[in-house]
């Protein structure tokens, strides 16, 4: 980064709205980059995204689905870096393509869970009264379901598949976000700056979406990132039980499951996707911790 740009970005007296937003973001990025574990998490997640996107290139055309029954359960070699599984499929290719499935699930769950949780939580927290009671009891009902069992029931009823896994996970994940958003909203709603906007005549919708939601967003994002590990594990668990992605699709949980019979003799079949699950979960956790430090209002 050139020196004048860095100076422009760290200016204490921004000259336009865009300048103010950019220099604020710059400060956030700098404090994030100064945190080594957060950076490690970011790198892991970035590498995961990179591998998922460029999987066809990185595997050099090796399909995750091509079977080679003659070369089944081959040990890692130059031809098959991570060996092959019980159907002779390349474990390296399957692991890379598996990242796509994992990322898809993670992305879909985030898109579903964060808005629902935020909306329910902020509305309940701001309006209070019977709205709060009704919304929060509904939340409690969903919170009472054990996540994996509900997901199992769902997947069993609707049939296995990524979409159903996403629905099942989302159904049990959103209440936690509603709770965070609600408690955060209740603190914010009593503060002077919200009272000031009320006095200006802002509508309830405006207060909620322009003033309260932006402040709840950071803790929801942090929680979401920290939850990613759990979501990935649940998805893998469903896959392991055969209730996740449909069979030929490369999915880490399913891969571990299929390698479990041969774990002592052909360790790579189950171990490689297991390591992938571990590293990615760790990556999201580190990232979440880092984001929490950056978003901490005390540092602002």
């Amino acid at each position: 980064m050139s020196v004048p740009l860095a100076q422009w970005l760290s200016s204490e007296a921004p000259t336009s709205r865009r300048h103010a937003i950019l220099s604020n973001a710059y400060r956030g990025v700098r404090s994030f980059l100064a945190n080594p574990t957060a950076l490690a998490g970011l790198v892991i997640v970035a590498v995961l995204v990179f591998l998922a996107i460029f999987a066809p290139l990185l595997t050099m055309g090796q399909s995750p689905l091509d079977q080679d029954l003659a070369g089944r359960l081959a040990a890692p070699s130059a031809a098959h870096w991570f060996g092959t599984d019980e159907l002779g499929r390349d474990v390296f290719a399957r692991t890379l393509y598996g990242a796509r499935v994992t990322l898809t699930i993670v992305a879909l769950v985030s898109i579903v869970v964060a808005p629902i949780g935020l909306a329910v939580g902020t509305i309940a927290g701001y309006l209070g009264g019977w709205v709060d009671v009704v919304l929060m009891r509904i939340t409690d009902i969903f919170l009472a379901f054990p996540r994996l069992v509900l997901a199992l029931a769902f997947a069993a009823a609707l049939g296995p598949g990524i979409e159903n896994a996403v629905i099942a996970i989302s159904l049990t994940a959103w209440p936690a976000y509603a709770r965070i958003a609600r408690s955060e909203t209740m603190t914010i709603a009593g503060s002077d700056f919200i009272q000031a906007v009320v006095l200006q005549g802002a509508s309830t919708r405006r207060i909620l979406f322009r003033h309260i939601v932006p402040l709840c967003l950071s803790s929801v994002i942090v929680r979401l990132t920290l939850d990613m590990a759990g979501i990935i594990l649940t998805a893998a668990g469903l896959g392991f039980l055969g209730l996740g992605a449909k069979p030929p699709t490369a999915e880490w949980g399913a891969m571990v499951s299929s390698g479990r019979d041969v774990i002592l003799d052909q360790w790579w079949v189950a171990t490689i996707p297991g390591i992938a699950i571990f590293i990615v979960s760790l990556g999201f956790n580190l990232l979440g911790d880092g984001l929490r430090d950056v978003f901490d209002p005390k540092s602002a």
Binding site: A20, S191, D192, F193, Q195, A196, H211, L215
Partner: peptide, 28 residues
């Protein structure tokens, strides 16, 4: 309109001075 006691609590922490002053004008 009301001016509050604590200037540290009465301004939205994620809005610039411009955004804070603009808000009432936009609302009305």
């Amino acid at each position: 309109q009301l001016v509050f006691q604590d200037p540290y609590a009465s301004l939205h922490p994620r809005q610039t001075v411009d955004g804070i002053l603009r808000e009432p004008l936009v609302i009305h």
